[in-house]
């Protein structure tokens, strides 16, 4: 059976160091000069617990949820957004015309522009290693180029708090599959029917 990749993010152990953002940006050459990232860690204050005045600081990493029913893929008119057999949702930069219907359809706000100006800026910023050649509406690819070589995504590799875990849902022995099966980790906005493959362990439920 082919692998079905997924990520679990434990909000209890994310310390907000942003190392995942830096690692991802360097690995995937995102337009960080325009504050556009494949993964972003929000530093939020939220009310939590039974007491309304109880305020918590929360670090909330966001990225493409690699949905099994991805609305960004169904609205994509050119087929640039497509799903691999292993569950990873990819963007073909050559096919993408940048209409941004995917950005409108994504409930997770995971898509962002890579413009002609960004391509020029990228040549300066990333130097001779710069590999982007076409504008597109970019997003996280679970670092599929690394995963194909048996490596973990850059953000997972660099996470100091082991907040990010990456694994195969089709392998019952995989720790990620076990956590997801236990129900401790939950997807975001599952009521939309997107069937995401990024699962979050809540910090607020544990606190209460």
């Amino acid at each position: 059976m082919a692998a079905h990749y997924a990520m679990v993010i434990d909000l209890n152990t994310c310390v907000g160091c942003n190392a995942c953002m830096a690692a991802c940006a360097m690995e995937n050459q995102t337009p960080v000069w325009a504050n556009r990232w494949r993964t972003y860690v929000h530093d939020l204050e939220v009310t939590s617990g039974f007491l309304e005045d109880q305020i918590r600081r929360r670090f909330f990493p966001r990225l493409c949820n690699h949905c099994d029913n991805p609305p960004c893929m169904s609205v994509c008119p050119t087929g640039a957004t497509h799903k691999l057999e292993n569950g990873i949702v990819m963007v073909d930069d050559d096919l993408c015309m940048g209409c941004r219907a995917c950005a409108m359809a994504c409930p997770y706000d995971a898509r962002f522009d890579v413009t002609y100006d960004d391509l020029k800026e990228g040549e300066t910023f990333y130097g001779s290693l710069h590999f982007r050649t076409s504008p597109s509406v970019d997003k996280c690819s679970f670092c599929s180029h690394r995963v194909m070589r048996g490596l973990k995504p850059a953000c997972v590799e660099t996470c100091v708090g082991y907040s990010r875990m990456f694994g195969d849902l089709n392998d019952p022995a995989d720790p990620v599959a076990k956590i997801v099966a236990s129900g401790v980790a939950k997807p975001l906005m599952s009521h939309l029917g997107t069937r995401p493959n990024v699962f979050y362990i809540s910090d607020l439920e544990r606190a209460t």
Binding site: S74, V75, C76, P77, T78, G79, A80, D93, D94, L95, C96, M97, G98, C99, R100, A101, D113, V114, T115, Y116, S134, P135, S136, V137
Partner: peptide, 29 residues
């Protein structure tokens, strides 16, 4: 719409009538 595209040349992919066979689920097609 064309002026607001990020990658203008790639519009050819959606002007090709074969797009209805390749991407029948996309309303822009």
């Amino acid at each position: 719409l064309f002026l607001h595209l990020l990658h203008h040349i790639a519009v050819i992919n959606v002007l090709n009538p074969m797009v209805l066979i390749n991407k029948p689920d996309a309303w822009i097609s």
